[in-house]
Write a protein that binds this DNA or RNA. Structure first.
Lengths: 344, 344
DNA sequence: TTGAAAGCGCTAACAT
DNA sequence: ATGTTAGCGCTTTCAA
């Protein structure tokens, strides 16, 4: 039994006694082809299970109809949601999507960018790996005028004709979280943060500080715990805070996992949440609604971020390469108040 | 400023005063090209930022070097892990990966399969949408001898020259979970399950029943709660069970989310876990280690499933189309005993 | 309204 | 060791 070759457009044409061009036009619903012919072509196409070869069409047209997506990973709540938003919006705009993961590794990020370029994607959506410090691989992209949209984790200050960005207003999210804690009566608020070279952490930290200041509270250096925001780190961070001469009465954590870690330590010490220590996390991970108490958190509107990012890309793709890139979009976060911080 | 066209292989050849074929061979490290020439070519390629056009190469070679992946969604713990395993193993075997989501919708599944076929993928990895009942779209794939590997949610009985499968031994996982509960002293064990037309649920249910039987316990129809295994469903299911004349003393839930729902109901009723009611879930979601008490669960070795699936596919791709598909692989689950079921 | 011819960028016989 | 030629499957002038 030998492999049945796929029916090509040429096969179709032969079967119909037509030229390839006519068949091509018929399938594309070109106005200059008679309805009768279109009918015949469509029927025969169905009969022979004709499937167009995208590769050939893309090569000929110089358009792959594909967008590239590069994310650090697809675990947790945030990235899967964003990717889903991207997939939906891209499909709506008639694009396919090629998804790659950098696994938080700068080298893999560079490789994947090359991969996407070689696959002739028409535009790229990226969220940076946490280890990326050099951005040369993106220059290559923008030099070829392939539009680029950074989302969430962006290269700050990287502006260009074909570069845009979509971010969350992390500052506002943090500001809202901390203001809320203050309003609940907390006066000594600690902060768990990740490495400050990443825009998201830098801005959340700034939001934390600004909220303190605007409410007349002092910024206390020893209440800031910088680490990797893992579960164990959160637990350790809380141990550390409890050992201080003047422990805090609340913690704003820049992610949810560390908040759970903190929660575990608090329970081990027999402390009550939120009475003895209030907690607010960031990202609205699924588990924040499942712990006890449930954890207040800042929702990032992940799905919207994905959709917005594609919209930015599509705008650039549509633009007659005349006008520059659309202005970066800043999305508004939403504070979800749950039991871990509700004192009143 | 006009768009700089990408440097093609032909451009490279011209710049070097060589023919396209020589350049092509040099870049492919063909043995019949002199080292000197290879050097020159490589250097010029770097200089002109030459990037090969995969589309053209794929069209010419009739090989896209791409595998297609179709999953119901990429939320939760399981699918992202599997996809990650797939990505890693595929890259190791020299393939790119195109990922699509069916969003649990049979129609989108069919569309995506077509999409992948049109993109000329060399093989496809699929986990079925829960609504898929008709499998015609896969016939089209196998008729063209594009190898297909189903994982986790498979089409049972669909065997063929170019079709294989990788599944978890769901029966064994369920059997272990229920046996464990019995060993902890539980005698009236309920079961939360999803729709039984899906192999995973059917097999877990069978494992549940067989464990009961093998330990001399009676199977009680009213202790089986069939629904969609969401959080609210689990809560409702538990309310239902508590309302029975003879409530159970344990629940084996076919997923973790419903187990958490059950837990919430139990807490609301002031019942103790595991003393009054023991719980075991399925999937080892991240949150099972974060709730209180932590939830015992069955780990699916998701990452391995992804890698194994790719290995199956690669085997079929390599086979001289002579011998049939490799035999389906059944992976062993691992029961993780946590606090929700540890009575001794 | 249809067909003929050229070519997208690459590779693989088949020369030389 | 290198070049010449042809063609993957499709679209798009241009011509009829």
């Amino acid at each position: 039994m030998k492999t049945p070759r796929r029916t090509s457009l040429t096969d179709l044409a032969k079967a119909l006694g037509l030229s390839a061009s006519t068949v091509s036009r018929a399938l594309a619903d070109h106005p200059e082809v008679s309805e009768a012919t279109k009918q015949r072509v469509r029927q025969m196409a169905a009969e022979l299970h004709y499937q167009p070869n995208q590769l050939a069409a893309a090569l000929r047209k110089g358009r792959s109809n594909t967008l590239g997506v590069l994310v650090p990973h697809i675990t947790g709540h945030f990235f899967p949601e964003v990717v889903n938003g991207i997939a939906i919006e891209a499909s709506k705009a008639g694009y396919n999507v090629m998804i790659c993961q950098s696994n938080e590794d700068a080298l893999q990020e560079r490789r994947n960018i090359e991969l996407l370029m070689n696959a002739q994607v028409e535009g790229i959506l990226v969220s940076l790996a946490s280890t990326t410090q050099d951005f040369g691989h993106f220059d290559a992209v923008s030099q070829l005028d392939v539009p680029l949209v950074f989302f969430d984790r962006i290269v700050e200050g990287m502006e260009g004709h074909h570069i845009s960005a979509v971010v969350l207003d992390d500052h506002a999210g943090a500001y809202a979280a901390v203001s809320h804690l203050i309003e609940q009566g907390c006066r000594r608020i600690a902060h768990f943060t990740g490495p400050l070279h990443l825009n998201i952490h830098k801005n959340r930290h700034q939001g934390y500080m600004d909220a303190l200041r605007d409410h007349g509270l002092e910024f206390v250096e020893e209440l800031v715990y910088i680490d990797d925001l893992q579960l164990a780190t959160g637990a350790r961070g809380m141990e550390h805070l409890l050992g201080l001469a003047q422990p805090p009465d609340a913690v704003f954590s820049s992610n949810d996992l560390a908040a759970v870690g903190a929660m575990q330590t608090l329970k081990a010490h027999g402390l009550r949440i939120p009475q003895d220590m209030a907690l607010v996390g960031f990202s609205n991970e699924a588990f924040t609604a499942l712990t006890e108490p449930t954890i207040s958190s800042v929702d990032q509107g992940s799905h919207d971020m994905g959709r917005t990012a594609v919209q930015q890309l599509v705008k650039m793709l549509a633009a007659d390469s005349a006008d520059g890139a659309p202005r970066p979009v800043v999305l508004k976060p939403r504070l979800l108040i749950r039991d871990s911080s509700r004192r009143k």
